[in-house]
Amino acid sequence: MIFPGATVRVTNVDDTYYRFEGLVQRVSDGKAAVLFENGNWDKLVTFRLSELEAVK
């Protein structure tokens, strides 16, 4: 189960963010908004829950 605050990895091989890890900001309607941070940039991207896996 994916909840806000969880760290997730993108599993969709066709996505630009494949294998990126980010922090879930919100979850609704089968989608999750994931925040990616890297140095001087932040990006908030929405994914279907089926495209994400929780990082242990």
Score class of each variant (00 low, 15 high):
residue 24 V to Q: 00
residue 30 G to S: 06
residue 2 I to N: 01
residue 53 E to D: 05
residue 31 K to V: 12
residue 14 D to G: 09
residue 36 F to V: 04
residue 10 V to P: 03
residue 32 A to V: 10
residue 56 K to S: 13
residue 43 K to A: 13
residue 35 L to W: 11
residue 12 N to C: 06
residue 52 L to A: 00
residue 27 V to S: 02
residue 23 L to P: 02
residue 25 Q to D: 05
residue 41 W to L: 10
residue 49 L to E: 07
residue 42 D to A: 15
residue 14 D to V: 08
residue 22 G to A: 03
residue 39 G to N: 08
residue 7 T to Y: 12
residue 45 V to F: 05
residue 36 F to Q: 00
residue 55 V to L: 07
residue 7 T to V: 12
residue 47 F to L: 07
residue 33 A to S: 12
residue 48 R to T: 11
residue 12 N to R: 09
residue 6 A to Q: 11
residue 13 V to I: 10
residue 13 V to W: 06
residue 1 M to V: 10
residue 29 D to V: 05
residue 33 A to P: 00
residue 15 D to V: 06
residue 30 G to C: 07
residue 43 K to G: 08
residue 51 E to D: 14
residue 30 G to E: 06
residue 38 N to W: 13
residue 25 Q to V: 15
residue 12 N to Y: 04
residue 47 F to C: 05
residue 54 A to E: 09
residue 23 L to N: 05
residue 39 G to Q: 08
residue 36 F to A: 00
residue 54 A to S: 08
residue 47 F to W: 01
residue 13 V to Y: 07
residue 28 S to D: 10
residue 18 Y to K: 02
residue 44 L to Q: 06
residue 31 K to A: 08
residue 49 L to A: 04
residue 40 N to D: 12
residue 28 S to P: 01
residue 1 M to C: 14
residue 28 S to R: 10
residue 41 W to D: 10
residue 43 K to S: 11
residue 51 E to G: 03
residue 23 L to I: 15
residue 25 Q to E: 07
residue 4 P to V: 13
residue 52 L to K: 00
residue 27 V to W: 02
residue 37 E to G: 11
residue 55 V to Q: 04
residue 48 R to F: 15
residue 12 N to M: 06
residue 15 D to N: 15
residue 18 Y to D: 02
residue 56 K to H: 12
residue 32 A to G: 02
residue 11 T to C: 10
residue 48 R to W: 15
residue 8 V to Y: 00
residue 4 P to L: 06
residue 33 A to Q: 14
residue 19 R to N: 15
residue 34 V to S: 02
residue 23 L to Y: 07
residue 13 V to T: 09
residue 51 E to P: 00
residue 28 S to G: 09
residue 33 A to Y: 14
residue 6 A to R: 06
residue 9 R to D: 01
residue 24 V to D: 00
residue 5 G to D: 02
residue 24 V to I: 04
residue 10 V to A: 02
residue 38 N to D: 11
residue 1 M to Y: 10
residue 52 L to M: 02
residue 15 D to S: 15
residue 7 T to P: 04
residue 37 E to W: 11
residue 55 V to P: 03
residue 53 E to I: 09
residue 26 R to V: 12
residue 43 K to C: 14
residue 44 L to I: 12
residue 23 L to H: 07
residue 12 N to A: 09
residue 10 V to N: 01
residue 49 L to H: 03
residue 17 Y to F: 09
residue 51 E to Y: 06
residue 42 D to G: 14
residue 27 V to E: 02
residue 1 M to R: 12
residue 19 R to Y: 08
residue 8 V to L: 00
residue 52 L to N: 00
residue 48 R to H: 14
residue 22 G to W: 03
residue 26 R to D: 11
residue 32 A to I: 06
residue 41 W to K: 10
residue 14 D to L: 13
residue 11 T to H: 04
residue 36 F to P: 00
residue 21 E to M: 11
residue 40 N to P: 12
residue 30 G to Q: 05
residue 31 K to M: 14
residue 29 D to H: 09
residue 55 V to E: 03
residue 47 F to Y: 14
residue 6 A to Y: 08
residue 26 R to K: 11
residue 25 Q to M: 15
residue 38 N to P: 08
residue 31 K to R: 11
residue 46 T to E: 15
residue 3 F to V: 13
residue 4 P to W: 05
residue 42 D to H: 15
residue 34 V to K: 01
residue 18 Y to G: 04
residue 16 T to E: 14
residue 31 K to Y: 15
residue 26 R to M: 13
residue 20 F to Q: 12
residue 36 F to T: 00
residue 17 Y to R: 05
residue 9 R to A: 04
residue 31 K to W: 14
residue 27 V to D: 00
residue 51 E to M: 05
residue 24 V to W: 01
residue 30 G to V: 03
residue 1 M to E: 12
residue 32 A to W: 02
residue 5 G to I: 02
residue 26 R to H: 14
residue 54 A to C: 11
residue 24 V to F: 01
residue 23 L to T: 14
residue 53 E to Q: 08
residue 50 S to I: 08
residue 45 V to K: 08
residue 19 R to H: 11
residue 32 A to H: 01
residue 9 R to S: 04
residue 30 G to T: 05
residue 34 V to G: 00
residue 5 G to P: 01
residue 20 F to C: 14
residue 19 R to G: 15
residue 24 V to R: 00
residue 46 T to G: 04
residue 32 A to E: 00
residue 54 A to N: 09
residue 24 V to K: 00
residue 18 Y to P: 01
residue 34 V to P: 01
residue 20 F to K: 12
residue 17 Y to A: 03
residue 5 G to R: 02
residue 18 Y to E: 01
residue 40 N to M: 11
residue 36 F to K: 00
residue 51 E to N: 05
residue 53 E to T: 08
residue 11 T to S: 07
residue 44 L to C: 12
residue 36 F to E: 00
residue 44 L to G: 03
residue 13 V to K: 14
residue 44 L to R: 04
residue 49 L to N: 04
residue 29 D to T: 05
residue 33 A to L: 15
residue 32 A to R: 00
residue 8 V to D: 01
residue 36 F to D: 01
residue 55 V to A: 05
residue 21 E to K: 08
residue 27 V to F: 03
residue 2 I to D: 01
residue 46 T to A: 06
residue 39 G to R: 07
residue 3 F to D: 04
residue 37 E to I: 13
residue 56 K to I: 13
residue 2 I to L: 06
residue 11 T to L: 08
residue 27 V to A: 03
residue 52 L to D: 00
residue 51 E to S: 07
residue 30 G to K: 04
residue 13 V to F: 07
residue 47 F to A: 03
residue 56 K to A: 13
residue 1 M to T: 11
residue 55 V to I: 12
residue 4 P to D: 04
residue 12 N to H: 05
residue 22 G to F: 03
residue 51 E to W: 06
residue 31 K to P: 01
residue 43 K to P: 05
residue 32 A to F: 03
residue 7 T to Q: 08
residue 11 T to D: 03
residue 28 S to K: 10
residue 27 V to Q: 02
residue 10 V to Y: 00
residue 17 Y to V: 01
residue 14 D to T: 10
residue 20 F to Y: 11
residue 42 D to N: 15
residue 22 G to T: 01
residue 10 V to C: 06
residue 19 R to D: 12
residue 3 F to N: 06
residue 17 Y to I: 02
residue 1 M to N: 12
residue 15 D to K: 05
residue 28 S to W: 15
residue 19 R to E: 09
residue 36 F to Y: 02
residue 49 L to G: 02
residue 11 T to Y: 03
residue 48 R to N: 15
residue 26 R to N: 13
residue 50 S to W: 13
residue 3 F to I: 11
residue 5 G to L: 04
residue 34 V to F: 01
residue 40 N to R: 10
residue 43 K to M: 13
residue 26 R to L: 11
residue 50 S to C: 11
residue 29 D to P: 05
residue 20 F to H: 12
residue 38 N to A: 10
residue 8 V to E: 00
residue 11 T to A: 06
